[in-house]
Structure formats: C-alpha cells, structure tokens
Amino acid sequence: MHRECLRQLDDILSRHDKNRSALIPVIQEAQELFGYLPREALLKVAAHLGVPASAVYGVATFYAQFYLTPRGRHRVKVCQGTACHVRGGRSVLEAVKKQLGVGPGETTPDQKFTLERVACVGSCSLAPVVLVDEKILGGMTPDKVSRLTKASTVKERMRGRAFKIKMVFKIPAAHTALFKETPAHAGKPMPQPAFYSAIGQKQL
C-alpha cells in the first residue's frame, strides 16, 4: 500500500509546477494521500520542487496541520485552554495519557487512537473538555476518562450495525391469476392474497 501511495504521489507532483510556491499545497495533498507525511514522501517533494529537504521538513513541522507519524482511526483531543486548565485539564490529560499509554502527538500501537493536546476548542462552559473525533465530552475528570474509548467504540458499532426492516409489496391485479384454483384445489375456496411481506436488511 505504501508503494502504491508513492506512485500516486508522482501523479500529484506532476500536476504542480516545480517551484517553492507549490510546497504547502503539495504536502497537503501528500498528507491526505498517506494520512501523514512519511520521510520518503518529503524527499520526493523536495526533489520535485528543487528545494532542500530541510526546507520541506521545516514547513511540515512548523504548521500544526501536518503530521510526521501515522494518525490513529480516532483523534483524542484534550483541551488545555485557560478555562480547562483552571478546572483540572492537566490532570485529565495525565489520565488520558495513562489510559492510552501514549503522549501528546503519539499514536497507540494498534493505530486506533492519536492523542493531541490542543488550545481552546470553544466550549469553555463545559470545561474541562475532551474531544473524541467530533464528539465533545464536557465536565471531564480523571475518573471519567474511560468514556473516551467507549465513545469511539459505540460509534464503530453503530456504523456497522445491521437492522431488519419490513417491506410490504402490493401485488398488481393482473398477477392475481397466479393464485387461481388448480385441480388440486378444485371445489375448495382459495383466498386471493393482496399483499405479501419480505424481510430485508439494510447496512448502516
């Protein structure tokens, strides 16, 4: 898969001019492709644009939007803004670090969670706040940290859950002849069914 992404990166590079002004757009597309910015990708970008690899690395590490390590399927963001800080945000961060076994900017070995320390997320009235993907968990305490993994687990289960629905079809009048008497039922009244039911499944 990594080799295939590198091949696709060549296609991305071919769409951009070979000059430094294309650096940020190129690495944005590269990160969207890989999910992060691996060393091989940064070197290919530098070679294509004709800029030093150190310059590409400098841009990738300067902006918070870029990542040099793989991201997990779920991003856990622990707010450390003023409101969250004074209400115990630091102890919440320590509890999250302990539960996940990783520090800010790191990803769990199973690639499920990436922990991030962020500034204000705009939900000060709910401080301390933790975000699991886009789900806001307010009033967090070290004892409530277990809700983090539960929030993402429920989300995954809901996405993959199947449920049954009942579909009712009306049989056209022209087809009711299919239910007329046969020799085996001669002399016996046979109902003319107007509906039948079927069970189908729909994947969420």
Rank of each mutant, 00 (worst) to 15 (best):
A198H: 11
G139V: 03
R71K: 14
V102E: 00
P38T: 00
P183N: 00
F169N: 09
A64E: 15
P109S: 03
A184I: 11
E40N: 07
R159K: 13
L137W: 03
D110Q: 06
F195N: 09
S146L: 09
V78C: 07
H74Q: 07
V96R: 00
S146Q: 13
H85E: 12
G200M: 15
A186E: 13
L13W: 09
D110R: 09
Y196C: 08
R71C: 08
E181W: 10
M190S: 12
Y36D: 00
T153E: 15
E32N: 14
K44F: 07
G35V: 03
A41R: 00
P70F: 05
K77R: 08
P52L: 04
G103I: 04
T176R: 15
V154N: 12
G187Y: 08
K18W: 06
L126E: 04
S14P: 03
K18A: 10
E32Y: 11
L43Y: 15
V78W: 08
G103T: 02
L126N: 02
A53N: 10
L68H: 08
G187K: 04
L115M: 02
A41F: 03
L178M: 13
K18F: 05
S54M: 10
V86D: 08
P191H: 03
L131H: 03
I171W: 12
F163M: 09
V78I: 05
L178N: 08
A60H: 06
Y36R: 01
S125K: 11
L137P: 02
C5V: 08
I165H: 11
R87C: 12
G89C: 05
Q28H: 10
A186K: 10
I199A: 14
R87F: 13
Q99V: 05
Q203K: 15
A198Q: 12
I12S: 03
K44N: 06
T176P: 06
N19S: 11
P25C: 09
D133N: 13
P193Y: 06
E134S: 09
H85N: 13
S125G: 07
F62D: 12
M167H: 10
E116H: 06
S21Q: 12
T69C: 07
T182R: 09
E32V: 11
Q203H: 14
P172T: 04
